[in-house]
């Protein structure tokens, strides 16, 4: 099994498209850091302008924690594409290149093959997020230092420095789970078709449509939102609330795990019974 996973990892990392994700992260994060270096103070002023009339604000709010949260927020839209790029190709890519039959003639069970593929994809997703965390949090702290963190959304929340770092560890863990939902969708679509473009497009379309439904307020949308997996993906922001609504976070985590289990089971069942014609 370990050998199979190594082989699958070799396949993943021998394709150029795999590196698109890493290159994007390596290029975009420094760009965001540079933008924040020059424009970050204006961003804070915009967020706190309601308070500036009656209050004097001082201290280092433009810090590595704030930068990392902005990066995480921005990348929640883009990382799914990078995940889908690889996951959508994992099974459909074998069909496109005509290696399915060759692969399945080996004395290995289909369950082992798909398990190795799934696990190696999970390793790719994890490596993407680890690099993202090191670059955003590590480099962010190196450039901007640490300090109390400001979060501006429907309210303004200020978190003490000592109360900030652990939230990022949980957030990246949460992001990993969210990306596994995306990965599981793309992996499932990849099992259904024989061309990798379809699963990538289908996964991204699903995320874009659901994300738009997610931010539309009022009317019927409010009733739909709890049923969208993107709603629960976005609940990582709740980890920066004070106090944290753990019941809500736990519900979202449970729903995402249920998605992963259901989608993966469907994929495994489908793949083990699939007629391979290519």
């Amino acid at each position: 099994m370990l050998m199979l996973i190594k082989l699958e990892l070799f396949k993943i990392f021998s394709k150029w498209r795999t590196y698109i994700g890493f290159i994007s992260i390596f290029v975009l994060i420094p760009l965001i850091h540079i933008a924040l270096y020059f424009e970050g103070k204006k961003l804070i002023e915009l967020g706190t302008q309601a308070l500036s009339g009656g209050f004097n604000l001082s201290g280092n709010l433009l810090n590595g924690f704030m930068a990392t949260r902005i990066i995480l927020q921005s990348f929640y839209v883009h990382i799914p594409l990078l995940v889908a790029l690889v996951a959508g190709d994992m099974l459909a890519g074998e069909a496109t290149s005509g290696t399915y039959r060759f692969l399945l003639t080996k004395p290995i069970s289909r369950l082992q093959i798909i398990s190795a593929k799934y696990i190696s994809g999970v390793i790719y997703v994890a490596s993407l997020l680890v690099i993202l965390m090191i670059l955003s949090l590590g480099v962010g702290i190196l450039i901007f230092g640490t300090g109390d963190m400001i979060i501006v959304n429907s309210n303004i929340t200020i978190l003490k420095e000592a109360d900030s770092l652990w939230r990022f560890y949980y957030s990246f863990g949460y992001a990993f789970l969210s990306m596994l939902v995306v990965y599981s969708f793309a992996f499932m679509f990849s099992a259904f078709v024989e061309n990798s473009i379809g699963p990538i497009m289908a996964t991204m379309s699903l995320i874009i449509v659901f994300s738009i439904l997610n931010i539309l307020g009022g009317g019927v949308f409010v009733h739909i939102q709890p049923f969208l997996f993107t709603t629960h993906m976005q609940n990582w922001k709740g980890l920066f609330d004070n106090p944290i609504d753990y019941a809500e976070i736990n519900t979202s985590v449970a729903i995402m795990i249920a998605h992963i289990v259901l989608l993966t089971t469907l994929t495994f069942v489908y793949f083990t019974k699939k007629d391979i014609n290519s």
């Binding site: 501006v152 959304n153 429907s154 309210n155 307020g217 976005q234 609940n235």
Partner: peptide
Amino acid sequence: KLNVPEFSLPSTITGENAAKAAQKKK
């Protein structure tokens, strides 16, 4: 005791879930 202006950023800017943003706004 002091007067502070109202604060409101639309969820399309904050990226927050609209229902949750409305719920959080006290």
